[in-house]
């Protein structure tokens, strides 16, 4: 059905380009550079399909909106949780939690709070002070010592850049900056080629529309952090190249981590992703391949990585506001099999 739309839309720019010379779109549009994605979200498409939140056991989430801005959420989590241990085998203990949450969501103020029955409390605030300046705060309180933390973020969004300053407890300081370096709107050669074709045959509008809509961005960014408590500091660089059909990212940090990722949007419903992670310090290498299908009634994500770990995550929409979740993870090497199911209401 989506395929029906472009032919109707396409002829309009074709006629416009016939009358007006193609000059304005040919060159790089330096005046109208779009805002890049935030530095910490540079890998979001890749993580979306490759880092599914697989869980084990049962999960039930219920969200009830009291009015348009305020909502309460209740969730029940039951199942075994892994306990970190030195031995190779994973130790699991059965747990059950109830989580109560309150959300206030307004266009420029967002407050989210969560309380778990084991005494954990998390709070998140996102407040747009002006159109460009945003303050974010995250806090977590636990009854275990040294596990509570809080972080403040100040984000400044410019015309073609974003910068962030971060401070947290334990003398954590960080800053990051990302800017669009290259933004090409149209590849002018194929456009000229197809305008002549289009005047004779209107059905070729699809092709023209595709070439017209190609935008390319290259954004580059860097970050610095200093953790005073652990006496650690680091430096990182990242690059992201994006067109309408693909996203490629690369990230290097002085902690020894190299991360490369690539997502190809095969169609509107399907995207394929792959990533490669290498840690120079610990010398471990992981590569993974995954798919992400967004269908009308479900979303299915699957991935397999070089450690032999396979996982899949299925969200099926049973009804309006009622989702059924199935999650599976197989690790043949560790003999660790995780299966979970859940229900989301509201």
């Amino acid at each position: 059905m989506a395929g029906l739309v472009p032919p109707g839309v396409a002829p309009v720019p074709a006629e416009a380009s016939k009358t007006a010379p193609t000059k304005p779109e040919e060159k790089v549009d330096y005046k109208n550079l779009p805002c890049p994605v935030p530095f910490e979200e540079i890998n979001r498409e890749i993580f979306m399909s490759l880092k599914q939140e697989t869980f084990e056991g049962l999960r039930f989430d219920f969200t009830k909106g009291l009015n348009q801005k305020f909502s309460l959420s209740h969730s029940v989590i039951m199942g075994p949780t892994e306990v970190p241990s030195q031995s190779a085998e994973t130790i699991k203990i059965p747990t059950a939690h109830y989580e109560f949450g309150a959300n206030y969501i307004d266009p420029n103020l967002m407050l989210i709070g969560r309380v778990l029955t084991d005494g954990r409390l998390t709070a998140r605030v996102k407040w747009d002070l002006t159109e460009n300046l945003t303050v974010k705060a995250n806090a977590q309180l636990t009854n275990e010592p040294h596990m509570s933390h809080g972080i403040f973020n100040f984000d400044y969004k410019g015309k073609d850049f974003r910068s962030q300053f971060q401070m947290g407890n334990g003398a954590l300081l960080g800053a990051s900056y990302i800017q669009i370096e290259l933004h090409l709107l149209v590849n002018s050669f194929p456009k000229r080629l197809f305008t002549t074709v289009l005047s004779s045959d209107n059905n070729n509008g699809n092709i023209l529309d595709f070439f017209l809509s190609v935008t390319q961005h290259l954004s580059l960014g860097g970050e610095v952090f200093w953790a005073g408590q652990h006496r650690k500091s680091g430096l990182g660089y990242a690059a992201r190249y994006e067109t309408d059909k693909m996203v490629a990212t690369g990230q290097v940090a002085s902690t020894g981590m190299v991360l490369l990722g690539y997502v190809q949007k095969v169609s509107e419903k399907v995207s394929l992703a792959t990533d490669f992670m290498y840690n120079y310090m610990s010398k471990d290498v992981t590569a993974s391949v995954g798919y992400d299908y967004i269908l009308r009634q479900c979303r299915l994500r699957g991935k397999i990585d070089s450690n032999g770990c396979t996982s899949a995550y299925l969200e099926e929409r049973l009804n309006m506001g009622l989702n059924f979740i199935l999650s599976a993870e197989l690790d043949h090497k560790k003999k660790d099999y995780k299966f979970g199911f859940g229900l989301t209401v509201g």
Binding site: L300, G302, L314, L326, A328, L330
Partner: peptide, 24 residues
Amino acid sequence: WIAGTTFLILVVPLIIEMDREQQF
């Protein structure tokens, strides 16, 4: 065994969902 279980996790749900979508 490994190939079969991997297939069961990665491909079987995909086939089922594609079929459902097509029916829809």
